[in-house]
Simulated scan of single mutants.
Amino acid sequence: MASFLFGRTLNALITVTLILVLVFVGARIGGDPIAVMFPDGIDAETQRAIEAQLGLDESIPVQFVYYLRDLVQGEFGNSIHSRRPVVELYADRLPATLTLALLAFLLSIVMGIGLGLIGALRRDAASGRLAMSLAFLGYAVPHFVLAILLIFLFGYLLRSLPTVGNATPYHFILPAIVLAAGLTASIARYTRSVLLDVLSEDYVRTARAKGLRDAIVNIKHALPNAMIPVVTVLGLQLTSLVSGSLIVEEVFAFRGVGQLLVGSVRDADYPVLQFGVIFFGLTVILINLFVDVLYAILDPRVRVGG
């Protein structure tokens, strides 16, 4: 187990290092913050002074060394445009994003397992086919397309839900639905597949042969055993919430960390962009590391294979 954990942790550290290098170099190649701040241009002397103030007058390797030094000291820098510490900027936005992600996660579990159950238990009926068709649509339709459709329906035609910002609890409804759509579809399809396998097991047929009603057999015997692998796969699907939040928050102008990160790309705000990519990258890496460890605990064969 120790060697397995060491190998997975080493892989995670290598990935983090690659993310650091790529985002640092890519940010400086991809945009010029001074050009964003002064679209009409400034004189060369003023530009050199601003570059020196922001630490952009050194070569990229030298800037990277300074950046690593600051990271070791716990300094993540200040936003180029607002001059506020980037940690403070993300701390202000993080509660809204966490709330949205939690709502989407809970919604996807309820809807995904529900659609999966209907798809498995009513597989030959119209309701079963409808449930899996909805799951397929949730999996196939991109986040931004679904977001635009819901904005048009509930914001323009029905005028029943707000579509911009996150000032009230009602502002969370549409973004949560969009963010949950893909995860709901994955859970539904996986639940249906696993439950169909469980329903064909001998102990389920034995329970039916004893005269137990189908509802009791399904709820007491089949469902609990089908949920074990479903719960495990949820960890793998959590990363979709991380990537999806970037698009969803931008479309709904939702003031979360995803919108902040997308805005930093547009404004070439290097410190905000670097911290945001590292934050999202670490989140995905830690989720995958947790799932790997969970697999190793539940199934010793994973440790041997690793």
Score class of each variant (00 low, 15 high):
2 A>W: 04
5 L>C: 15
6 F>E: 13
6 F>N: 12
6 F>V: 15
8 R>P: 02
11 N>Y: 13
11 N>V: 10
12 A>R: 08
13 L>I: 11
14 I>E: 10
15 T>G: 10
17 T>F: 14
20 L>F: 00
20 L>K: 00
24 F>L: 01
25 V>C: 03
26 G>L: 14
27 A>V: 14
28 R>Q: 11
32 D>G: 12
32 D>I: 15
37 M>V: 12
37 M>Q: 15
38 F>K: 12
40 D>S: 15
43 D>T: 08
43 D>S: 11
45 E>L: 06
48 R>Y: 13
48 R>H: 14
49 A>Y: 02
50 I>G: 06
50 I>A: 07
51 E>N: 14
52 A>I: 00
52 A>T: 03
56 L>R: 03
59 S>A: 12
60 I>D: 04
62 V>K: 08
67 Y>Q: 00
67 Y>L: 00
68 L>F: 01
70 D>V: 02
75 E>Y: 12
76 F>R: 02
88 E>A: 13
91 A>Y: 01
93 R>E: 03
94 L>P: 01
96 A>G: 09
97 T>K: 07
98 L>Y: 06
99 T>D: 00
104 A>M: 10
105 F>R: 00
107 L>V: 10
108 S>N: 08
109 I>N: 13
112 G>P: 11
116 G>R: 05
117 L>Y: 03
122 R>N: 07
122 R>V: 00
124 D>G: 06
126 A>S: 15
128 G>P: 00
129 R>C: 08
129 R>N: 12
129 R>E: 12
130 L>H: 03
131 A>I: 10
134 L>Y: 13
136 F>G: 06
136 F>N: 09
138 G>S: 07
142 P>Q: 04
145 V>E: 12
145 V>R: 08
145 V>D: 12
147 A>Y: 03
147 A>N: 12
147 A>M: 02
148 I>C: 00
150 L>S: 03
154 F>T: 04
154 F>W: 08
157 L>Y: 04
158 L>M: 04
159 R>H: 09
160 S>G: 06
164 V>A: 10
166 N>K: 09
167 A>F: 07
171 H>S: 11
172 F>K: 11
174 L>C: 09
180 A>F: 14
181 A>D: 09
182 G>K: 08
184 T>L: 10
184 T>V: 09
184 T>Q: 11
185 A>E: 09
186 S>I: 01
192 R>D: 10
193 S>M: 02
196 L>G: 10
196 L>M: 15
198 V>Q: 02
200 S>A: 15
203 Y>H: 08
204 V>L: 15
205 R>V: 10
211 G>P: 05
212 L>M: 08
212 L>P: 12
215 A>H: 06
218 N>A: 11
220 K>M: 04
223 L>C: 04
224 P>C: 01
237 Q>M: 03
239 T>G: 11
247 I>W: 04
247 I>G: 08
248 V>G: 05
251 V>F: 08
254 F>L: 03
255 R>A: 14
255 R>D: 14
256 G>R: 06
261 L>P: 10
267 D>N: 13
269 D>I: 06
275 F>W: 04
276 G>D: 05
277 V>M: 10
278 I>Q: 04
278 I>G: 03
286 L>E: 05
289 L>N: 05
290 F>M: 10
292 D>Q: 04
293 V>M: 01
293 V>A: 02
296 A>Q: 11
296 A>N: 09
298 L>Q: 15
300 P>R: 03
303 R>H: 15
